[in-house]
Design a binder for these strands. Structure first.
Lengths: 189, 189
DNA sequence: ACCTGAACACCGTTCAAGT
DNA sequence: ACCTGAACACCGTTCAAGT
């Protein structure tokens, strides 16, 4: 009866990544299982392991996709703009911050963001060591703030009843902390 | 043949929490499954649902345990000391930061840390709004930095080969960012 | 008040084998 | 180069029933 429909398509690494990102956007990280991803690609789960050695490495690929706006960044953007693009990129995908967090430690996701941040600071006439220090602080701040903000927003969307907390995490509080760090005085040592 | 060994013990909520913390310390978050926890307590997995409505709420309980040093804090501790205790508490347990991160958004874990931080800042003669703003920034920074640091340390311990990244996360870089935020000038708006 | 036993609907990963 | 099929060793959660 011959291959029905589009059944005999073969996929590239990028196809897999694109579908993973789609699943993430539409359903969130808990639904992004290797098995669900395989189902969506009309393939056996084991097929994914030809493209990625593990789920962790697949997620690292997804994190890079999420942070791809960091590549298309204006050369002259200032540090505040870079940080804002970083935050926006993570917020643009369901559980984006969590995916990025799970890969920073591997040195796979956030390095470009860090470099963009540091370069912007150097352009703003900070010396190298100071730019490095501020960029490091900024990066950790952005990740902490944004993951909090996104988790809270999504818990609300899922109807989880939250204790109301005095800790704010929205655009205003983000900018507030951002400027606080940017306007800190020289070195601390 | 009568109940063998100590088989007929019944557990309290605190017993379960204590064992969860032990499992976390010894094995890490991936090994802390409801089923493994039940096995360790010599109980059916379903028994845990008498004590906690879900794994998420169990982890919230674990997060509170992890952050309990925030309760025993010297009344006169300054903000830098409070932040350091916060970091140390998370670092003292395998995957501690990740557990805390997963519960901040629920308003269940980090609130006390925030209040301690804000109170310390008020004691240091900042007005309320400024203390709130700095404490919020600090909290997100501490969480971002510490989760990065811990993830990296543990990946190394597991022998995962890491790309070497320019982003530092150790005690020195923590203190550096900490002081940067603490010494930031007035409000930014 | 605390737990059992059985079931439901899932996971990530490996590996020989196929085309 | 890309995938199948089957298997292994797991998950969280529910629920009627027991003591």
């Amino acid at each position: 009866m011959a291959a029905t429909r589009e059944s005999r398509v073969r996929h590239t690494r990028d196809d897999v990544l694109a579908m993973a990102l789609r699943l993430l956007r539409e359903c969130g990280l808990p639904e992004l299982s290797m098995r669900a991803l395989a189902r969506e690609l009309d393939v056996q789960p084991s097929a994914l392991y030809w493209h990625f050695a593990s789920k962790q490495l697949l997620l690292a690929g997804v994190a890079e996709e999420i942070l791809s706006p960091m590549n298309a960044l204006d050369e002259n953007a200032d540090a505040a703009a870079v940080a804002t693009v970083f935050r926006d990129a993570m917020l643009s995908v369901t559980d984006g911050a969590e995916v990025v967090v799970s890969t920073v430690a591997l040195g796979l996701g956030a390095d470009r963001a860090f470099e963009r941040l540091r370069d912007a600071l150097i352009r703003e006439h900070h010396e190298f060591d100071r730019a490095t220090s501020i960029a490091t602080t900024l990066l950790h701040y952005c990740i902490g703030h944004t993951s909090h903000e996104q988790q809270r927003a999504q818990a609300l969307r899922l109807g989880v009843e939250l204790e109301d907390s005095p800790i704010m995490a929205n655009k205003d509080s983000f900018l507030d902390g951002l400027h606080r760090i940017l306007h800190s005085p020289q070195s601390s040592a």
